[in-house]
Nucleic acid binder design. Structure first.
Lengths: 157, 157
DNA sequence: TACAGAAACTTCAAGTATAAAATATTTTGG
DNA sequence: CCAAAATATTTTATACTTGAAGTTTCTGTA
């Protein structure tokens, strides 16, 4: 067994990982570009807006600002502007937290949830198309392998 | 064989692909965040700057502006600002193209090439660490599978 | 040769992103 | 109880990103 494995020189491991990284980047970028275009053309919205709404849709009671940035892995100050605009559009509301005057909880409105559902359906279709080369098994297998290289982050309470 | 495969309901293919997409996104984002931080802390530069220098390093004769954006798959107008700043830093120069007064060819300076070599070494190490869970075989295998879902783009001449 | 159209690039507006500083509000240790 | 530390968020400065509009410069063709 180790004789078979040794056909790949050990020094090349980091080169193979680098190749994988460049491939991951190329694939996700090309899909992201397509999604961005679709969101723009069909819903007049953007990927970051959709991401925030997707995060909120998973939490009945909403999320605090810092929880959103934790879930989405983007910087804290960034969320403010996106939430501001979604709020202007009536897609979500900021609810003040009873015991803590610093924090506010962000929640989708009914309108926001309905809009998100429409977008999510389309989104799933776009992804299924973009990753159409993968069978369910392949998708599942790669997902699981990628699962290992994970750095867990703060979770919403 | 098809009996074994049929354990996975067909309707779930798009769900599996969606899961794969979300995993790809999470993985690449988390690695990108780490890289950004490293570039900042150790070289005082940014990922987009590194990307541009990496592209240029592969072409002895440099690249035209539109070729850079083609290779990196980012929008045309975007490159202008990045190249401006790299030029201010002396990492690259714009050389006018003899027959065409519209175009200019961008080329790394000696200083820029040396700096890029240092950065590229560190970069490879960071990636090897971030993708440390993958053996060379795994990395190679996943790279190849991802290779199929590709949309080719214009190449430099 | 004239000139419409293409090409290369820059500029622009709006939005997104980060890190760091500022503000306001708890919470905690003495 | 109170100053110091921690927490939640916003603000600020700078950079990056896109798509679209604008400028200048070719190029093909009538």
């Amino acid at each position: 067994m180790s004789q078979i494995l040794s056909k790949i020189p050990l020094e090349d491991v980091s080169k193979e990982r680098l190749r994988l990284w460049l491939r991951l980047l190329k694939t996700t970028r090309s899909i992201e570009t397509k999604l961005r275009e679709n969101f723009r053309d069909e819903f007049g919205t953007t990927l970051p807006r959709f991401d925030v709404m997707a995060a909120l849709s998973r939490y009945e009671d909403g999320l605090k600002m810092s929880e959103i940035s934790g879930v989405l892995r983007v910087s804290n100050g960034n969320i403010t502007g996106i939430v501001d605009r979604l709020s202007d559009d009536g897609q979500l509301v900021r609810v003040s937290v009873p015991g803590d005057r610093r924090a506010s909880r962000v929640r989708l409105t009914k309108k926001g949830l309905q809009e998100f559902d429409r977008q999510a359906k389309a989104h799933e279709g776009w992804i299924a198309e973009a990753l159409g080369e993968f069978t369910a098994e392949e998708a599942r297998e790669i997902t699981m392998r990628l699962l290992t290289s994970e750095t867990p982050e703060e979770e919403a309470k």
